[in-house]
Every structure is written in structure tokens, then in C-alpha cells.
């Protein structure tokens, strides 16, 4: 629809410089530059490397998004940007850019919550979100269960990881198994050749009655198991370890997500974040949702990982809901709580 506002969204909370453009629920552009290759040899994201890369990539990625959408700066009605949570120095580059575009174009600024943006992005693929829904966000930096009465105004935290994020556990186990960083896709691939029942790894906080997660003990259990094998001179069955580890993670995640839906009488579950690209998580979530009579929504993988489109999608929702824009003196808040959808 032509008369819906055109929103440009900027995401720089970690290593991806993402710029998306949406009109209403329609995705027009999703441009991205990643500094992942620069981080890979360090085995994790190096904040200063990411911040430098954001500054280098920002204006070219914005130009690319405008070209992809076939629009000009003058057509943009609002700017949205991830204000937190994330890496402080990385967030700051995106927030500085967004403020400058807001001032330069004379258009309102919306500083938004990264996690709420991961929820809002699904509207670009599957249309308006049911109110309420439960969202599970699982990535290298986050593992959260959220109750979402309205993504523009009200997001409630049900639980989150007490130690490592799910994606972090994938990275660390990949390293133990000699698989490259980032670990998620490599473990997913290796696991397809293995048996998820070969080894029983612990399931942290499985029956504790909370919606919190813990993956640190699992990671250590895998490392111990592998080291014992190596000590006894036996080969490490990489595929079986990968499949069994992955099963432990997705078993806990899906069990708690379904329990959250049941407890709150919610019939729609959304899964987002980079780990939502995991094929076993998608399969088991579908199976358990079907059995529980819950509708499952998972955006396509490119929209699950960090991107600018999700920020634009949330910005668009805020404009539609009539939420007041942010002031130009907002900080980048590395530990922005989920209770703050906007800043």
C-alpha cells in the first residue's frame, strides 16, 4: 500500500551491518555486510573489529538498500535503529548513523529493542502477529522466552539463559569437535550423519518449573566426554556427539517454549534468532507444536539472523501504533531490558 510509511531500519548490535527498508508489512530491501570472516580466526566476535567494520560498511550498505528498494532518501518517512541490547561500541555506530539520517532528512527516529525486532520481523513473512503470542529468541547472544501481548508496546520476559546463550554453546562445542566458527551450521550439518540418541547429554533446568535455560553444564559435559574418548585413544564420533548435543539443546528449548504457551493459554509460538535456522530445532518444534495444537511461526533463515529488515519492521509497527519517536539524545544501551521496546 502506497500510503503506508516507508521505514529504513539499521542494525549494528553485533557483527552484521544490516539496513532494511519496509513499507507496512512489505519487505523492500534487506542489505547486509558481515564482518564474520574477520572474527572467525579469533573464535568469536571481537568488539573493536566489529565496530570498525560497521563504520566502513554503513553508508555503502544504506546506498545498496535504497537501490534494492528502488527508493530515494527523500522517500523515507522514518528511521529505526537498534539501540540495544548488544555490543556497546557496535551499537553506537548504528545509533550515530541513524541520528544523522534523522537530522539530515528531517524524519523521526525510533531507537528500538533488538529482541523485539527479532519478533516483529516475522510480520514481513507471515503477516500480522497474533496478540498475544509467545516468542523464543535463540542466538549467539540471547536465549529468551517472551510473552508478547503487542510487539509495539508490550513485551514481557518469561525467562532467559542463566549462563551461555544457546548459540554460544554451539560455538563452544564446535570448537571442542574441531569444527569451524560459527558452530551452528557446522554442527547442524555434522548431526545429520549421527544419532541423537547415541549419547545422553544433560538437559539443564529441564524440570525446574521456570522458563530459564542453562547451557554451560552441557557444554562442559560434551567437552569431558570428548576428552575421555581422546584419552582412551578411541576416535571421537563427531557426528554422534554433534547430534546428541544438538538434541539436548533443542529438547530443552522446545519443551520450555511449549510449556510457556500452555501456561499462558497462548496458541501461537514464534521462534527467531540465528539458532532458529537449525534444522533439528525447526523439526522438533513443529512436531511438538502439532501435538499440542499450537501454531508455529519461524521466519526464513535470512530473517532469523541479525538484519536491518527486522528493525525496519518494528519501526513500521511503532509508526502504525502511533508510538512517540525517540529523542536525538538517546544513548546506545548495551543492556537494554526487553521491557523497553523503544528508547
Amino acid at each position: 500500500m502506497r500510503d503506508e510509511p516507508l521505514v529504513l531500519g539499521i542494525e549494528t548490535s553485533c557483527d552484521e551491518t544490516g539496513v532494511g527498508i519496509v513499507r507496512g508489512h512489505t519487505l523492500l530491501a534487506d542489505a547486509i555486510a558481515s564482518s564474520m570472516e574477520e572474527h572467525a580466526r579469533f573464535g568469536g566476535v571481537v568488539p573493536e573489529v566489529a565496530s570498525r567494520a560497521h563504520l566502513e560498511a554503513m553508508t555503502p550498505v544504506v546506498e545498496r538498500a535504497l537501490a534494492e528498494a528502488g527508493v530515494k532518501f527523500a522517500d523515507v518517512d522514518a528511521i529505526a535503529v537498534t539501540a540495544g541490547p548488544g555490543l556497546a561500541g557496535a551499537l553506537l555506530v548504528g545509533v550515530a548513523a541513524a541520528k544523522a539520517y534523522s537530522l539530515g532528512l528531517g524524519k523521526p527516529l525510533y531507537g528500538v529493542n533488538h529482541l523485539a525486532a527479532h519478533v516483529a520481523v516475522d510480520q514481513l513473512e507471515h503477516g500480522a502477529l497474533p496478540k498475544p503470542c509467545v516468542a523464543m529468541l535463540v542466538s549467539g547472544g540471547h536465549s529468551s522466552l517472551l510473552l508478547v501481548p503487542d510487539v509495539a508496546t508490550s513485551v514481557i520476559s518469561l525467562g532467559s539463559t542463566v549462563d551461555d546463550a544457546a548459540g554460544e554453546a554451539f560455538d563452544k562445542v564446535a570448537r571442542v569437535l574441531g569444527l569451524p566458527f560459527p558452530g551452528g551450521p557446522h554442527i547442524d550439518r555434522a548431526a545429520r550423519e549421527g544419532s541423537p540418541e547415541a549419547i545422553f547429554f544433560p538437559r539443564g533446568k529441564y524440570d525446574d518449573g521456570t522458563f530459564d535455560f542453562s547451557f554451560s553444564g552441557l557444554k562442559t559435559a560434551v567437552a569431558r566426554w570428548v576428552e575421555a574418548r581422546e584419552r582412551s585413544g578411541e576416535p571421537v564420533p563427531v557426528a554422534d556427539v554433534a547430534a546428541s548435543f544438538q538434541e539436548s539443546v533443542v529438547d530443552v528449548l522446545t519443551r520450555k517454549a511449549i510449556a510457556a504457551c500452555r501456561e499462558h493459554g497462548v496458541k501461537d509460538l514464534l521462534i527467531g534468532g540465528g539458532v532458529a535456522a537449525n534444522s533439528r530445532l525447526r523439526a522438533l518444534a513443529q512436531e511438538r507444536c502439532d501435538a499440542a495444537g499450537i501454531r508455529l511461526r519461524v521466519p526464513r533463515p535470512k530473517l532469523c539472523t541479525d538484519n536491518g529488515a527486522m528493525v525496519a519492521a518494528l519501526g513500521s509497527e511503532l509508526v502504525a501504533a502511533g508510538v512517540a519517536p525517540s529523542h536525538l539524545d538517546i544513548p546506545a544501551d548495551s543492556s537494554l531490558p526487553i521491557t523497553a521496546v523503544t528508547l
Binding site: 563504520l55 544504506v62 541520528k99 539530515g104
Partner: peptide, 19 residues
């Protein structure tokens, strides 16, 4: 110091392209 420095440069680049 890099964090502050980047604020100025990002602002300059974005203003330059927007204007």
C-alpha cells in the same frame, strides 16, 4: 579514543550522503 571518534565520523558520513 575510538568509540567517541567513530561517532563523529559516522555522523559526518551519514549527514554527507543524506544532504
Amino acid at each position: 579514543p575510538y568509540t567517541g571518534l567513530r561517532v563523529g565520523l559516522m555522523t559526518a558520513q551519514a549527514l554527507s550522503t543524506a544532504l
